[in-house]
Design a protein around this nucleic acid. Structure first.
Lengths: 204, 204
DNA sequence: GTCTATAAGTAGATAGAC
DNA sequence: GTCTATCTACTTATAGAC
């Protein structure tokens, strides 16, 4: 399976994948018609069957590729940090990477966030597996901060993780570039998350 | 239009409405079949047409009723606060009321959050109007805190509002009662939001 | 590789009995 | 008020030409 950035659309197959993400994000799983995907990709529906064996397979691949791309991007951003980076620095980096890839790749991101709960049973497992891998990155980030005392000790880490990722995912729903840059969203999200999680400075 | 709590289901009409919310939350706008709604309401599809003139009208009403119920609940919780309540107390109350109604009424809440972006143009306007009314409550809460100095002065209030509401809305996606109570989610969300927004205590 | 034509299935909606 | 029967429209998927 091709793991390159899906929208670059080198070939027809990638163009179909990107078209499917666009329609999926707008119309939802059940509302995504093969003819609409084909039209966005500038060909006719039967041509899609040359690259994908069914509508379900195509949709499943959009979801997995989109989710994996987010994980890869966040994971690479964390790997690029110097080893001195604090737990909260690492979390801020993850916030930035998540928002940047999500708002750039917003069709794929919205396709995943809006439809992962609406998929038929056959498609659920691979998407859930990718999503679990992504969540485990965040679980480790929060546990590290909790262990070194930079995150408040009384915080429920799982709930906090779900709330933070929810806030970030939801950005693809409302952000459209008309009112401010991605950088502005990132700055606000980083401030909210940092102060929301951080333990108060201990008295000297 | 009936504005009573939608799930109580006094009559057949309310039972259909609740059934539609359930199917809508799970299957999405386009995936919501009239026959599935009818089955959940324990009758046959043509009976639905006795109460609603079309599938679209029924779905539109689920969305508006669900969104209005959230607004009403939050707004009543705020009205019940004593006048001495601080801006941050008011925000914590809104967090609690939002989560409580959303996780109790989760079919309606999920129907609104997941599908408001997937509606056909005819249904969009009334839902958007209700949603705008709800957001204006939060806008005022944040502006009050900003004005009295309890919220950090450098925060972008619109972005902060969207991120906070996004985090709360998303809870209906992952919370299922199996791992903790609503109260625990509320406590974590209140702590994250309060510390995320609050201005640092000024030096004496 | 992509097309036109078409088969097979399923949905919303209406007619009309009870 | 709710049902059974049915009409019409639309969707996925395949066959086979180019």
């Amino acid at each position: 399976m091709d793991t390159s950035k899906p929208e670059q659309g080198n070939g027809t197959r990638d163009r179909i994948l990107a078209a499917a993400a666009t329609v999926l994000a707008r119309e939802g799983y059940a509302g995504t018609r093969l003819t609409d995907i084909a039209q966005h990709a500038e060909l006719r529906a039967p041509a899609v069957y040359y690259y994908f064996s069914s509508r379900e397979e195509l949709i499943g691949e959009v979801m997995v590729v989109g989710q994996r791309w987010v994980r890869t991007h966040v994971s690479e951003a964390l790997a690029a940090l110097p080893s001195e980076a604090t737990s909260l620095d690492r979390i801020e980096t993850a916030v930035e990477a998540h928002l940047r890839v999500e708002l750039e790749l917003s069709d794929f991101a919205r396709a995943v966030t809006r439809n992962s709960g609406q998929l038929p049973p056959d498609l659920r497992a691979p998407v859930a597996a990718e999503s679990a891998l992504y969540h485990s990155i965040w679980r480790e980030l929060l546990e590290a901060g909790h262990a070194d005392g930079s995150i408040r000790a009384d915080l429920d880490l799982r709930t906090a993780r779900m709330l933070v990722i929810g806030a970030l995912n939801w950005a693809a729903e409302w952000w459209n570039g008309e009112r401010g840059t991605v950088g502005e969203v990132i700055g606000t999200a980083q401030a909210l998350v940092r102060h929301g999680l951080a333990a108060p400075p201990r008295p000297a």
